[in-house]
């Protein structure tokens, strides 16, 4: 029977070394090679792995972006997705995460209207150019579906529910969630495959529908720059977080002693 998965991807600069325009405070995109956002590659791979273990599953891919973003959709098909949908219009340009998640939500609704129910939406945890991590949970809010972000493992999935491991700073949560739902995945979840020959041939032949704001019946006040409440006052690279101190020792007693010594040395106790 299988499920229908929609993976949301974005074409971003093909490097993690993003440059910020000092005048406008936004990203420099001109002259940068483009590729699928690295976190989205894990999303595509996980969807294809679910397809391999749950027969009858279909993987759709959607992106919002300029005409050249179609390359990233073909790349997703080469990596095993079945079909792709391209939301593209000048009216979508300049969208913040609110308008982006709204537009993708309308696109997913259109997919459901044309291709039948969607059971699972997969996003990368964030993009390498925006770094917000808002869009996945945002789509879930628009759809009014449950969502789990920071997913590092899909333990099981069927037509009714999904069990995932969520990566937390202090450990791992194992969570069960009814479908339909949204998950956002981290890079620890898998190692993406190299696109296969059959996939590459399929990608070359694929017909990818292009949808604009009218096709997806979007509220014009909620899309693009005009529909974006966010104002970027300043962008900067955050200073790297300092690592903690690891207390070594052969036994628990040794470690406890080392910890107490350290705290006394720092005059904290």
């Amino acid at each position: 029977m299988g499920i229908h998965i929609v993976v949301c991807i974005k074409q971003t600069p093909a490097t993690s070394n993003i440059q910020i325009d000092p005048v406008t405070g936004t990203l420099k995109r001109e002259g940068m090679a483009a590729a699928i956002n690295p976190f989205d590659e894990y999303g595509i791979e996980e969807a294809v792995r679910i397809k391999e273990r749950l027969p009858g599953t279909t993987v759709s891919v959607i992106t919002m972006g300029p005409p050249q973003a179609e390359e990233s959709l073909r790349e997703a098909i080469a990596r095993g997705a079945d079909q792709a949908f391209h939301l593209t219009s000048r009216a979508f340009a300049g969208a913040d995460t609110w308008a982006t998640s709204y537009t993708l939500f309308k696109g997913i609704q259109k997919i459901m209207k044309e291709k039948g129910p969607v059971h699972l939406v997969i996003c990368g945890k964030q993009t390498n150019d925006g770094d917000t991590g808002h869009v996945g949970p945002g789509i879930a809010a628009w759809l009014d579906w449950p969502n789990i972000a920071y997913v590092k493992k899909v333990e099981s999935v069927d037509e009714k529910e999904i069990v995932v491991h969520r990566m937390m700073e202090d450990g791992v949560d194992v969570l069960e969630m009814d479908l339909p739902a949204v998950i956002a995945v981290v890079k620890e979840i898998n190692e993406p495959r190299v696109a296969g020959l059959k996939g590459k041939m399929a990608a070359k032949k694929a017909v990818i529908p292009k949808w604009n704001e009218a096709d997806i019946e979007a509220d014009k006040k909620s899309i693009g720059l005009g529909g974006s409440p966010t104002i970027v006052s300043k962008s900067f690279n955050p200073p790297p977080r300092k690592g903690g101190v690891k207390i070594d020792g052969a036994t628990a007693q040794d470690k406890a002693k080392a910890l107490v010594d350290k705290l006394q040395e720092m005059k904290l106790i």
Binding site: R193, V194, A195, G196, L197, K198, G199
Partner: peptide, 11 residues
């Protein structure tokens, strides 16, 4: 496994 997924055994 990688070669299988990439269809290279079948060329």
């Amino acid at each position: 496994e990688e070669l299988k997924k990439a269809d290279l055994f079948g060329v």
